[in-house]
Amino acid sequence: MLANLHLISCNFSSQSFDLRPRSSSSRQTQSLHHPKLPRLLPKAGFNQPFLLKHNENFPIQRKGSIQICRSVLKSPDDPEKEQEGLKESKDVGARESRDWTSSILLFVFWGGILYYVFNLTPDQTPSRDMYFLLKLCNLKGDDGFRMNEFLVSLWYIMGLWPLAYSMLLLPTGRSSKSKIPVWPFLVLSCFGGAYALMPYFVLWNPPPPSVEESELKRWPLNVMDSKLTAVNGCLSLLSQQVLLAAGLGLFIRAGISIDDWGEFFQYFRESKFIHITSLDFSLLSLFAPFWVYNDMTARKWFDKGAWLLPLSLIPFLGPALYLVLRPSLSELAARSEPE
């Protein structure tokens, strides 16, 4: 019962009251004969209401006699409400104070890239470009023509980039404030590469939302992130290792084909298709270190994994190596649980 008591503070009048004890005879004499006290008893019978006439010399002031009393203690729910209010105010302040400079610059850069792709890239061999595209997609049979090994390696690596970015952007690359889903851009990146991902980079606003434990058990996070469960963990680790091994094999294949390098550079200067594909690979390699850093900080693994950040500058192989070595979110959650 004492725990529910509240302290009440009231602002009473500044005039003091005489609280000294007096004898009963003196109190009666003062109440009946004191000239400055108002008459409290009516002259007529008890049926009339009591009247209290204010006197100018009465010690209680007329104005300010009604005071506002407030509790100095808070109810048990107030701290939680206060924390929620502070969190909401911080979110509102963050939304209002968002700096759009980087997004605007990135949008201008994306627009410039698209203008270059559609208007300034070389287009001297359109028929040969279509032939190369059919050969690389295995839509044209063996006609005795030997494809450039460097071009073949580049084409297959471009097919692995969307998988690598899916592992980086799901879930730590999602945007919690702009509410823009990432999966449509990842699907489009299978066909458009960096040209389809850059609009999401423009709209992205950190930090990413928290991932619930039930979400880690659902597709695609159970395959791309989990390493603890038997089946999903093996699939996740296998996909990451296959990604690294395939990329390493393609780089080795391109590296040993030294005789094809000169031919590839000639294609680059003449072919629109090869020019755009090479630029796409360069853009994906350029943005990958940032998303590796974002994923690393979101997992709070920067202290242990900072040595991988310079390696992420290596095109494709650096981010693929990070994906193999990084801890999963479920593993980090298991470590943080108290024993």
Rank of each mutant, 00 (worst) to 15 (best):
F281D: 05
S153D: 03
Q240C: 06
P181Y: 08
N148V: 03
F201Q: 05
Y115P: 01
Y165A: 02
I276N: 07
R146Q: 14
S25F: 15
P171K: 07
K179P: 02
E213Q: 09
D123T: 04
G305Y: 12
Q240D: 03
R174Y: 04
G93R: 14
Y116R: 11
E149S: 15
G141D: 09
R70W: 13
S178N: 11
D303N: 12
W155V: 04
S127R: 15
L186K: 01
S153L: 03
M198F: 11
D78V: 06
K140R: 15
G112S: 05
L114W: 11
S127F: 10
D91K: 15
D260L: 08
S16L: 14
D259T: 12
E88C: 04
D280T: 06
Q240V: 04
P327D: 07
N294K: 12
R22L: 14
L321M: 10
R20A: 10
L197P: 01
L309N: 06
L283G: 00
W183I: 09
I157Y: 04
E337K: 15
L238E: 00
L248Y: 08
H34C: 06
L168E: 03
W100C: 01
L238H: 06
G144L: 05
F191P: 00
S103R: 12
N222T: 07
Y195T: 15
N232R: 15
D123Q: 11
Y195V: 14
M198P: 00
P35C: 08
L5W: 09
F17A: 12
L151K: 02
W100G: 04
Q124F: 10
M198Q: 05
E56Y: 05
N119W: 11
G64N: 12
D142Q: 07
S31F: 13
E331M: 11
D129Y: 06
L134R: 08
Y322G: 01
M130T: 06
P207L: 09
G93Y: 12
A245L: 15
